[in-house]
Design a protein around this nucleic acid. Structure first.
Lengths: 157, 157
DNA sequence: TTGCATCCCATAAAATCCCATGTTATACCA
DNA sequence: TGGTATAACATGGGATTTTATGGGATGCAA
């Protein structure tokens, strides 16, 4: 009975010859509360796979509906890209999912996958690429520290 | 909804061969009110481990969601950095948590850990490093804030 | 049938639990 | 006030469970 929805930590797992990989048990525990499958799609901006609960995509759909025009090119493009690419991945009794060629290729993953928690979602990376990416982010954040103080909330939009 | 709690004091505990260390009982008492686990991550700026309640991360998640754009690079970077590094550490019936190699290495901790209260958070240090850090902080404060002692009003007791 | 995906079992490694014991802090009593 | 009994806490080590992962069996579709 926890409403905690945070994918955390960085976990390295093997991908076997069949494309199967264990979903980290922490992640499984979260997912299990509402279903037995996750949704994955190719990241729009990085060479990695993104995963989340179907919930999030649902919210995103609503979000896109309210913040872009129904007939806009933007709405068209976003919905095509995101929902056209996303796919459900049920995990088996041992907690594994079977990733597709398309996804693995996009992330350049062969035999090892790195799961990176992102709060409401997570990413799956090729180990070397993630190493570089993490270094880049750390350098970036240290250089210009973002402001994270609670800003006065605005009621518009 | 609790808001009046503070991690205080400085406590030294042993880290055993399995990486286990007792969470100071004062800290445990605080945590127990809402859960049985804490969240730890590598400090971004110091060679130490930071710990807090999951609440704090959850707030942060919401915060980031509302103050940056869903598709922005900033949101991406921040969530990767924060949630990718943080991990839940449940404590067992005797009150111990099992720290990971990654964290211990970052803080240079081998067989002894120093817990330092920081209010809503706390830090875990290698003893020697903490000693130096504390001295540094004290020196810094003395140098930059020479007026720490308002002139004593009439002596009495 | 052949190829592909899922299911099931086996096993090794790692994380966790549980009991025993030493140590420190607190309570109680004379 | 001092000294002892009691409880709380910290810590060590072994037992148990969970998790990750390989491989084979099974079922379905083309």
């Amino acid at each position: 009975m926890r409403s905690n929805f945070l994918f955390l930590d960085t976990i390295i797992n093997k991908v076997d010859a069949k494309g199967r990989v264990s979903l980290p048990s922490d992640y499984r525990a979260i997912v299990k509360e509402t279903s037995s499958e996750i949704v994955c799609y190719r990241s729009l901006t990085s060479p990695c796979i993104e995963g989340c609960l179907e919930d999030l995509l649902d919210k995103l759909a609503t979000e896109i509906e309210t913040s872009t025009d129904f007939f806009s090119q933007t709405q068209d493009d976003l919905t095509n890209l995101i929902f056209g690419d996303a796919k459900r991945f049920p995990f088996d009794s041992t907690g594994r999912i079977g990733l597709t060629e398309k996804l693995l290729k996009h992330a350049n993953i062969t035999d090892t996958a790195v799961f990176v928690g992102k709060g409401r979602k997570f990413q799956i990376w090729n180990p070397e690429n993630w190493e570089k990416e993490e270094a880049r982010i750390r350098a970036e954040v240290l250089k210009n520290r973002p402001v994270l103080r609670p800003a006065p909330k605005e009621e518009n939009k």
